[in-house]
Each structure stands twice: as structure tokens, then as C-alpha cells.
Simulated assay, not measured.
Amino acid sequence: MRVTTRVDLKVGKRIMQVTAAVSSVANSPFEFRELDLDELRSNEVLVRLVATGVCHTDALLRDQVYPIALPAVLGHEGAGVVERIGSEVTAVAVGDHVVLSANSCGVCAQCISGEPSYCEDSFGRNFGGTRPDGSTSLHDGDTPVSSMFFGQSSFSTFANVAERSVVKVDRDVDLSILGPLGCGIQTGAGAVLNELRPEPGSSFVVFGTGAVGSSATMAAVVAGCTTIIAVDIVDSRLELALTLGATHVINSRTEDVSTRLQEVTGNKGVNYALDTTGIPSVLKTAAENLAISGTVALVGAAKPGTEVNFEIGLSLMKGWNFKTIIEGSSVPRTFIPALVRLWKQGKFPFDKLIEKYPFAEINRAFDESERGITIKPVVIF
């Protein structure tokens, strides 16, 4: 792919031309375009992308379930090499290998308390399509292109990335597998290890065995859960779950989930449940099968306005808990390297989830992900 630089005489700024997969029309395939990447800001890092994961959240924005101004460059699981740094950047240096994760402001009460996933400006910095000052990093001629998605917009050969989205990783690990740690894998693992924190010997069930659910299964093993149940409708994914550490699997198309969960737990219910689907009926089933003082957590994205009903009469005596979780409630700069260390020790084999695609076949990657053929697609530049 061709990369050139030029000087735009009208604005007097150095411009890099990049190749990007652009979402131009809702519910339509990505189009490849040559776009102008603007001058690096003082708090940004220029990254040459090596690979980027394909996530369900990208599809939600592409299809305008969560609206973003079009045209837009999405992508939020990038991995690459630092080419330049802004004058204020201290977290990385030129030549560093990096994973790109979610953006945050760094100064609100949540950020300074170690909870950047719940940054007060999280929506604007991750879904707004612009920098905080309203500018975009990408243009198609004179047309602004929504960018800085999750502080990065990694469906592009190069990206100006917010410093807080950049995580330095070991150079001895293949960058082509690391991108998904920035969101999907971090979300599933973090939901278990950072939020639910199950006790050794406890029971855990995950609904949905895509990248997030599979990562949660592996994390439950790391945490010491001894009953780990995976629920899905695809037998091949359930078979993989068993190799990742699940002790039981349930196909919700052919089995009654509640009956099976009670059988597995001796009618006591599960201590911890994680819903990765965002489907109200699934979340309701998860809550109904909790043990006393059990906790159910939701990480699956649903259309704004989606609601679920919980029984609050008899369940009052159970003292159960419900929480929502974003990005695994993690601090990416510490949690992502921790996951890499677990992987190196053979305790977190997330690479088993990955299927690689050339960047030119990004639309096939999305299609095969949506059809359940691939658990975690990664496009390679």
C-alpha cells in the first residue's frame, strides 16, 4: 500500500496520505480510500499499524446502531509500531511496539481514581468521531472524516493516536496477535479478574462464547473457579470452550439452560454470571439462576433504550447483585501487559481465538465474524 507525505499549502501543515477502510453508508461494506492524516498533535502518537482486531462494536457503529457521523474510519483494537511522538508524550518512544486501547481524559474523578473505563468524557473521546476540540485527524480532500475512534481509528495504515490509548508491549511478542487485547479480550478477562473477582472454588457461567466470552472463560480458570459453564448456540464454539477450561457446556438451542444450570450446581445456582450477548432474555435467565449473594454482570452491547425485567419479590431474599462493565474495568497500561505475561506462561491462550485476514479482505472478516465462522478476526496490514 502506498504511503506518501506532502505539504498542504492552504493550511501549512504536514500531511500524510494513508489507506483506510471507510464506512460511508450505514449497513454497507467498508470502502478503501486514500485519506489525508493531519499533523500530529502534542499529546498524540503516530503509529504504523501492523494489525487490528475486528470487534462487534465496530459493526454497531458501521450500521449506525450507535450513531457516528459518516464517513468514518472505525477500528479500536490496533497494534503497531510508534513512528513519531508529540512534544508532550512520555509514555512511549519511537520504535516501541504498542497495543491501542480505549481513550480517557486522565483528569476526571474516575480517571484519577484508577477507573479510566468510566471516564466522565468516555463517550466523547471514544465515540464522538473527533478530538475534544472538534477536529478530525482524517480528511478526504476538504471533507472531514470521523476519526479518533477510541482515540485511534485503527482501520488505517497509519493513525494519530491519543497518548492515553497507547500501551507499550514487549517487542518479542508477535504484534499480529496482540490487537484484540485492546478491547474484546481485555473486556472478557477484565470482567472476571477486575470486577467479579470470583473466589477459588466458586462457580461461573458465561453466556456467549465469542472473543469476550472465551476470554472470560480463560480468566475464570486463572481465578481458580472449579465449575465453569459456557452457554452458546454454536457447537464448535462450545467445543473450543472445553479446551479453554470450561467444565460444562450448554447449547441453548437444544437444551433448557435453567434446568441444566441447576443440575450442574446441585440446585444452588451459580455464584457468578457474565452476559456477553446484551439480549434481555439471556440476561434475565442469568439473574434467575444465581446462587444466594450471586452476581450477574453485563458486558454485551445493546441498542440504546433496551430494557430487561427482573423478578424482585422472591429474589429479594437472595441478595443478588447486578453490574454493568465497560472495557473490563481495566487500566489498560497495566492490565494488557499482565495478560501478555499470562499468555507467555501458557495460562491465557487467547491466540487460539484468532483468525487472520489481509486488510483488503476486511469485509470478509466482518461477515465471517457475524456468521460465527470466526471468533476473533484480525486484519493484517
Rank of each mutant, 00 (worst) to 15 (best):
R6Q: 12
L9Q: 14
M16H: 13
A20F: 11
F30N: 04
L37V: 09
E39H: 12
L40D: 12
V54L: 09
L60F: 13
D63H: 06
L74E: 09
E83N: 04
G86A: 05
L100F: 13
N103F: 03
P116S: 01
Y118N: 14
E120R: 10
G124Y: 00
R125Y: 08
N126H: 06
D133Q: 06
S147V: 10
F150M: 05
S156F: 09
T157W: 03
E163C: 02
V169W: 08
V169A: 03
G184L: 03
S202L: 02
V206H: 04
A216Q: 11
M218Q: 12
A219M: 08
A223H: 03
A223C: 09
T226A: 05
D235C: 08
T243M: 07
L244T: 09
L244W: 12
A246C: 11
H248K: 01
V257L: 13
S258E: 15
E263I: 02
V270Q: 10
T276M: 12
G278D: 15
S281P: 13
L290V: 00
L316P: 00
K323S: 11
I325K: 00
I326P: 02
V331T: 11
L339W: 02
R341N: 05
K347S: 11
F348C: 02
I354V: 12
P358E: 14
E361C: 05
R371D: 14
T374Y: 05
